[in-house]
Design a protein around this nucleic acid. Structure first.
Lengths: 198, 198
DNA sequence: ACCTGAACACCGTTCAAGT
DNA sequence: ACCTGAACACCGTTCAAGT
């Protein structure tokens, strides 16, 4: 029996997003998603090639909802801190998603996100190479932290470890990331500003 | 038919470790492991409760082989750098293992590892709270980086992104982690050294 | 004590068929 | 064009039975 409203890619991704937020990305299953949509598992395959593609779509969707990263006259440190904290607050709601937000250029929407980050640092006066290293560093830390949060959530912890709240860990981490970039890049660019070899 | 040499926990973990190193931790399967051991899948269950426990045993085993972290008179920066780089080189051989090395205290052998890290920073003069934040930060970054490496490996990349080698990203990251800890902790402990609330 | 064999409840996915 | 149904090749795991 045909449904009242035909299935679509957007409806599928929307439902997948809901499931990912409720149960975590690792418990998102084609069969479960189909059941939630009131449809046969194979109906999904008409709109989406396979599960990997579906996960990529979900990841892209979340990426799209991100607060844009722009450099204001507050300085890159303030802008970066605001952005990283906002990004953490958004992504921590989707457990397991952190590990899928790699910094690999080949990955759809995340490519734009990476270029935006690199451009941000270049606008702040970093060399092209330093900008890439700095942005990768910041994002890598964030993903690492999201993984830890996902695991803490998975095993039913209260979110506190050794009397320190997850938020405190992140606050310290983001501050340290910024200070680390500042010091390390300053040192690297104090020497002759070598262009990265091809 | 009984085997010439009876199965044991150690033999199982050893074989699992081999599989994890060859194919990645996510492709480690009870059935595949049993096949490699020339045994029925259920034989493993006599020695190990379930897959989660097996993975924990593998993770613990790798942890045990880690270079110990000790503070020498070279200073904590030098010691930490050496240790983090060594740890990365060791763990990058086991793709997917990074995300299982969480900083959750409840986790077997990793608990000792965490305490060792905290003790390291305390010995270097950090407050208890700062030591915990600093160690967590360093480890979190490393795990994030291992995740990225695992993904790069998974999709068959050359290991280079935008002309920058994985090793360069890690080298920058470790330097930035150290500089970040230095600056952030100095700032935090400049004020009245508040004891963390219970 | 140590292991096998059959079975259960799940996966993702292919392939042919229905409307 | 859009979806169903049956089937295949996998999982982790339980449970009863063999030696």
């Amino acid at each position: 029996m045909p449904r009242n409203v035909p299935l679509s890619r957007d409806v599928i991704v929307g439902a997948a997003l809901e499931m990912a937020e409720r149960d975590g990305l690792d418990r998102l299953t084609m069969r479960g998603l189909a059941a939630q949509l009131g449809v046969t598992p194979m109906a999904i395959y008409y709109h989406v090639p396979d599960k990997e593609a579906l996960v990529d779509l979900v990841v892209d969707e979340v990426h799209q909802r991100q607060v844009p990263l722009e450099l204001t006259d507050e300085g890159w440190e303030v802008c970066l801190r605001r952005r990283l904290l906002a990004q953490w607050e958004q992504l921590v709601r989707y457990p397991g998603l952190g590990s899928h937000l790699s910094n690999q250029p080949e990955m759809g929407a995340s490519r734009q996100s990476i270029e935006a980050g690199v451009a941000f640092f270049e606008a702040a006066g970093f060399s092209s190479r330093s900008a890439r290293l700095a942005w990768s560093f910041a994002i890598t830390y964030l993903h690492g932290r999201l993984n830890v949060d996902a695991r803490l959530r998975g095993r039913g912890g209260s979110g506190k470890v050794a009397g320190i709240r997850a938020k405190d860990y992140v606050a310290f981490g983001v501050d340290a990331v910024i200070a680390g970039i500042k010091a390390t890049v300053a040192e690297a660019e104090a020497g002759v500003d070598l262009v990265a070899e091809a």
